[in-house]
């Protein structure tokens, strides 16, 4: 499977589904995502019921705490990285390995930018006294957004591994599904973020 050499013309139209392993991976990541949907639903539900709840006289509320400009910039980073990941898949279909590597690399950079902003945000909150153990609200906030951040980190490590491991191998039917599956996972991270910026940040500012 590794040794078969392709040209753009012999490369199958759906390289991620050309092998049985590829199909398994494709179905597998989706099934995994279904369980992740429920995982995040539980975290969201917990967050909603603990929002702005804290010890008597807690000074932090979501209205004062959250800053929309930062959330907007983070959203743009993650949304754009979703598009660059689509570009990587476009090149995957066209058997353009350089394009795949390049756009996956851009996705990683955008993801790193997002992560840096999130770390800055968390650092800022802790600095002003809104630490993890400060109240039920803070625990729920950091757990929900932090779990998303953890997913981002996993996605980044995954894509970096893919770029590094395949740099010398080139594109074949063994690693094409790997790229595809990582891309689906990355889009899912974006889906979760859409709900986070809506439910946590926008509705948080509304109060």
């Amino acid at each position: 499977m590794l040794n078969t050499k392709f040209t753009p013309q012999t490369w199958p139209e759906h390289p991620e589904q050309a092998t049985h392993e590829g199909k398994n991976k494709y179905v597998g990541i989706w099934i995994f995502i279904c369980s992740d949907i429920v995982l995040f639903a539980s975290l969201f539900a917990t967050y909603i019921s603990l929002r702005n709840k804290g010890p008597a006289g807690m000074q932090f509320t979501s209205q004062e705490l959250f800053e929309l400009p930062l959330a907007f910039v983070m959203t743009m980073f993650l949304l754009t990285s979703s598009l660059t990941s689509v570009y990587a898949m476009y090149h995957l279909k066209n058997y353009n390995f350089k394009g795949v590597q390049l756009w996956t690399g851009v996705t990683v950079l955008l993801g790193l930018g997002f992560l840096a902003l999130e770390i800055y945000e968390f650092y800022h909150y802790v600095h002003i006294g809104f630490g993890y153990t400060q109240s039920a609200f803070s625990s729920a906030f950091f757990t929900l957004v932090g779990t998303h951040g953890l997913h981002v980190i996993i996605g980044l490590v995954w894509m970096i591994c893919l770029i590094v491991r395949n740099a010398s191998r080139g594109l074949n039917l063994y690693n094409a599904p790997k790229y595809f599956v990582a891309s689906i996972y990355w889009h899912f991270i974006d889906v979760v973020w859409v709900f986070i910026f809506t439910v946590v940040y926008l509705m948080g500012v509304l109060g």
Binding site: Y26, V27, I31, C34, I37, V38, A41, I48, S49
Partner: peptide, 26 residues
């Protein structure tokens, strides 16, 4: 895509269950 019908069934069932959680916790 392979088994896309089964996949979308799973995704939407997951979404319905997720919605139930929201509703209950609210």
């Amino acid at each position: 895509a392979p088994f896309i019908g089964v996949i979308s069934t799973f995704v939407w069932v997951g979404a319905v269950i997720a919605f139930t959680f929201f509703l209950a916790f609210n």
